[in-house]
């Protein structure tokens, strides 16, 4: 089957500074692909390219087999490419229900959005009248993921889901990610800390200095990860 996402020799970054130096990455449909690497490796920039927010200076971005270089991020979002950014990407000064209402822009009714959100994350139902910014980090992350589910994504891009969260919460969130994958949603998840994500992923890649240095089964990648982070491998 055609990969849902493919990056070929992607170079890009911010202005004249290239962060990515020839990234090759393939996400097959229905897969959970973990992209791991230390801080500053270019993981978030890669997600920026995949979601159309950063236009690559060289290379090709394929979505479902079509070269979509230069496509606007809103077109990709409408089609079903959904990014949950690092730092959650919710409206902190609105209540949970108001946040969910904001997610109805794609034409989904509030009742449907709430139904999906509260089924996946029952805790949000208890907090529906609470200001989102006053909830715990884990609950905010759940809300961010609820937004992603509201638009019925085909490809979900998750950036540092575990950032600043307790291990138990992270585990719970990744259980949800596994459930989403079981429903057929393809997921590219970026993480600095691999422990939780490797348990739910089918394939993992290590990214260092703007390049993918290794792609393979999660078990193999887990073994090589420490060495990679400490600067051992660059093949």
């Amino acid at each position: 089957m055609t990969p849902i996402l493919e990056l070929r020799g992607i170079r890009g970054g911010y202005g004249t500074i290239d962060v990515l130096h020839g990234v090759n990455l393939t996400v097959e449909a229905g897969q959970v692909h973990a992209l791991l690497g230390p801080n500053g490796a270019g993981k978030t920039t890669t997600l920026g390219v995949c979601s159309g927010q950063i236009v690559p200076s060289a290379g090709q971005l394929f979505i479902s087999g079509r070269d979509v270089n230069g496509v606007s991020s809103d077109s990709l979002a409408r089609a079903g490419v959904c990014l949950v950014p690092e730092g959650r990407g919710i409206f902190p000064n609105l209540t949970v229900t108001e946040n969910l209402r904001m997610f109805t822009h794609s034409g989904v009714s509030l009742a449907d959005v709430q139904d999906k959100a509260f089924t996946q994350f029952p805790r949000l139902k208890e907090r529906r009248k609470q200001i989102a910014g006053t909830m715990s980090g884990g609950e905010q992350q759940m809300l961010a993921m609820a937004r992603a589910l509201a638009v019925n994504p085909a490809l979900l891009l998750l950036d540092e889901l575990s950032m600043g969260l307790a291990p138990l919460i992270v585990e719970e969130l990744y259980e949800r990610v596994a459930e989403l994958a079981a429903q057929g949603i393809s997921i590219l998840v970026v993480e600095q800390f691999a422990q939780a994500v490797l348990g739910v992923s089918n394939v993992a890649s290590i990214m260092l200095h703007g390049r993918i240095t290794r792609t393979g089964p999660p078990a193999e990648i887990a073994e090589e990860l420490t060495e990679a982070y400490l600067g051992g491998t660059t093949h």
Partner: peptide, 19 residues
């Protein structure tokens, strides 16, 4: 859903914009 996604991607207008 994937077929629908494929159709939406195929119908996208792409201007080939550069960084």
């Amino acid at each position: 859903r994937l077929q629908e996604f494929q159709a939406e991607v195929d119908s996208m207008k792409i201007d080939g914009g550069k960084a």
